[in-house]
């Protein structure tokens, strides 16, 4: 995000510039990938420390305070908690490489398929919500740019941040139940587009934020000299917006999109619980109630892999959009 990057492009022959860019981008892609694996390892280490180093004894916590010392000991043996930390760490890493996340303590089912299925539902809602926000913030900015008298739209969507998602969700559910009693909100967990109502509610907050961010960027572009030049050259209003306001704003706007995905994650969990959608919200609640630490660890790790993957891809794409990065 350098403010004033002054590369004198005119002094470099065009061919050399593009060749250098290709080599540099290959190296930076490699660096980003390597650092992602570093991050992944850190996330794994965090999970490991959380469940093995903290003063609480997982076996004791899982079995509850009334369990006998013998059964705690045997569970410790079964989970391998009596081995040295290094041995535990290497064993868990070995399991991780072979994609073995262990089995659920509650019902003995393997963790990974369970987590994948439920996590998919949650992240589906998240992606839908943030994509709705992306589209709506684009449309509102386009409308306000073309017809400035619609400026109040920006203020209107700003109301999305005055109430937390659960309140909007409950009020929404109540209103829908009152005006459209035929629509069933709870049974809509099947299919990718089924949870559109929760997604729409979850999107209100990102809509408010992303509309503001894009608006601010567009206003900055409008104040710049290249924008005046574009008007002078005679570009149409639409082309002014898309080429000279939207394009320079792509990176902050898309970065906000990626950030929102992680930020609304918790709101999504709560919405799932309110609308009784069987996603990772329910999975987490059960895992915490039953002290099912393998599931908890699985959710944390799958999450980490997903978000690290997203941020890696976005960094590579952003470097394509804006070579200065």
């Amino acid at each position: 995000m350098g403010g004033e990057v002054s590369v004198d492009i005119t002094s470099v022959p065009l061919g050399e510039l593009s060749e250098g860019w290709g080599r540099r981008s290959a190296r930076s892609v490699l660096r980003i990938v390597v650092s992602s694996f570093g991050l992944l390892f850190t996330a794994f280490l965090f999970c490991f420390l959380l469940f093995s180093v903290l003063p609480s004894d997982p076996a004791r916590v899982m079995l509850g305070p009334n369990a006998s010392q013998d059964s705690v000991e045997s569970l410790r043996e079964e989970l391998g908690l009596n081995d040295s930390l290094v041995k535990q760490l290497t064993r868990q890493m070995g399991q991780l490489v072979t994609l073995d996340f262990g089995r659920s303590i509650r019902d003995g089912r393997p963790v990974l398929p369970e987590v994948f299925e439920k996590f998919g539902v949650t992240i589906g809602i998240g992606i839908q919500a943030t994509t709705i926000a992306l589209l709506v913030s684009y449309l509102i900015n386009l409308i306000v740019f073309l017809r400035p008298k619609f400026g109040w739209l920006i203020g209107l969507v700003g109301f999305g941040v005055v109430a937390p998602a659960f309140l909007l969700a409950m009020a929404g559910a109540l209103l829908i139940g009152y005006f459209f009693p035929g629509i069933s909100l709870t049974a809509s967990a099947e299919g990718f587009f089924a949870p559109l109502v929760p997604s729409a509610i979850a999107s209100l907050y990102p809509i408010a934020l992303m509309t503001r961010i894009l608006r601010k960027q567009v206003e900055e572009c409008q104040a710049s000299s290249f924008f005046r030049a574009a008007i002078a050259v005679g570009h149409s209003k639409e082309s002014q917006f898309h080429r000279f306001a939207l394009q320079p704003s792509l990176v902050p706007w898309l970065a906000a999109w990626i950030n929102q995905l992680s930020l609304i994650f918790f709101a999504t969990l709560v919405l799932e619980l309110i609308f009784s959608i069987s996603g990772s919200g329910v999975l987490l609640v059960n895992a915490i109630q039953d002290r099912d630490f393998p599931i908890l660890q699985g959710v944390l790790l799958v999450n980490a892999v997903f978000f690290i993957g997203i941020s890696t891809i976005s960094e590579i794409v952003f470097a394509r959009i804006d070579p200065r990065l």
Binding site: A43, V61, R291
Partner: peptide, 20 residues
């Protein structure tokens, strides 16, 4: 910062809260 970004922080809070 990147490490905190990898897991939604509320999830970290939930996990920590569940353990301690």
């Amino acid at each position: 910062i990147s490490v905190i970004y990898t897991i939604p922080f509320v999830l970290i809070a939930v996990a920590l809260a569940a353990v301690i």
